[in-house]
Write a protein that binds this DNA or RNA. Structure first.
Lengths: 213, 213
DNA sequence: CATGAACCTGAGGGAGCCCTCAACTTTGTA
DNA sequence: TACAAAGTTGAGGGCTCCCTCAGGTTCATG
């Protein structure tokens, strides 16, 4: 759109870029609840300037995450193109968590550990739509267990998020092992009845809307 | 031991009991990082009195958790007595997470989301020793996949902790579904090679010792 | 250049939580 | 009952992070 808002002054544009770069780093390292002062400091800018450009923390998220989430879209496209539905499903899942593992902020965002603005939520929904297709395809092929639902993918994300956070500093590859176990449980051949219904869309929405404790 | 420390004065003993009861409630509801002022308030006692009895947050943990963890010991005993090693393993695991689900503080403690005092850590170790036996037994019987290691149980705990935390308010049984999927991946028949080594004891120790980000 | 608009700055007030300590109150004992 | 020891109180100082805004600085334009 680029509405009639006149272009930023040169110094302002420079500061904005620095702030975004710093925010990207800081959020990736320390999570989405990192102090904004740290971001301003790393950008070489005062806290007031940060608030000039991004009046709310969310505004930083808005500027940072949509492009990063686009990577996920690409991974999903590729996964859907895989002739083998299971291996597409598994590959996307691995790609997703590989991103989590290198970006703690993305981890926080997708695990919904922080209230997010509509634009990031929308990007999550787009991503979720891909997941639904990947799940449906893998179920139709008979490779993914029939009682797995797309909403169960949320639980997978919560699970792996925590594993990744705990192990990131010490054994940054161990999450792959854990994911391997988990995926083995999702194969059709492994299925034993679970006996508990999955999250309804309403329940999932309520969890997503809830403040992070 | 009950060393020569003389008994508490009546009012002091009463306050101590109230504080422990309040702490039990508050930690169970809000997690181990709940404000101590809330505990004092709920106990009907001033914050100074809380600090008199429990100079550090850890001292509250010490008084609260060992008895609660004893429940785990009992569950483990029972699981070891199960003639079917797999069903013992699975039953213990379910019992463990059922406790997590009703006590957020225990969840935090076992998921190591908070630095813990030696006594609680020791109780965790005792629990972990049981887990090792349950794992070994289930592997020997050929029901638990051979490449599962006791250290992998930590990842299971991290996983489920997060799922339980996220869903507790909205769908308090859904964790069972997720656990079902996970357990299906741990059955010997489901195993596909994972290709990543498990956590070494040293790595696990470092994670446990690390401050919670 | 000069000038006004755009932008930046950082001290400072607010909020939540931590923990301490001097003054006060209660208890148990003689 | 009287008194010392034990226990309680809550205001207050410290910390970290939030966010604002009056005053100073820099840029773009004529």
């Amino acid at each position: 759109m680029t509405t009639g808002t006149r272009p930023l002054r040169a110094d302002a544009a420079r500061n904005r870029d620095r702030l975004l770069a710093a925010a990207g780093e800081v959020f990736a390292e320390r999570g989405l609840d990192a102090p904004l002062e740290e971001i301003a400091r790393r950008a070489g800018v005062s806290i007031g300037t940060l608030y000039n450009h991004f009046p709310a923390r969310d505004d930083l998220f808005d500027a940072i995450f949509p492009p990063r989430m686009a990577v996920l879209d690409a991974a999903a496209q590729e996964a859907l193109a895989d002739p083998d539905p299971w291996s597409g499903f598994a590959a996307f899942t691995e790609a997703l968590f590989a991103l989590h593992a290198e970006d703690r902020g993305l981890n926080d965002a997708l695990a919904q550990r922080v209230p997010l603005s509509p634009e990031v939520v929308e990007a999550c929904h787009r991503c979720f739509a891909y997941i639904e297709r990947l799940v449906a395809r893998a179920k139709e092929s008979g490779q993914l267990r029939a009682d797995f639902e797309a909403a169960d993918y949320a639980a997978l994300i919560w699970s792996m998020s925590q594993v990744i956070r705990e192990t990131a500093g010490v054994a940054p590859q161990v999450w792959r092992r854990c994911l391997g176990f988990f995926l083995d449980g999702l194969r059709a051949g492994a299925a034993h009845p679970v006996g508990v219904p999955g999250l309804t869309p309403e329940q999932l929405a309520r969890i997503m809307a809830a403040p992070p404790a």
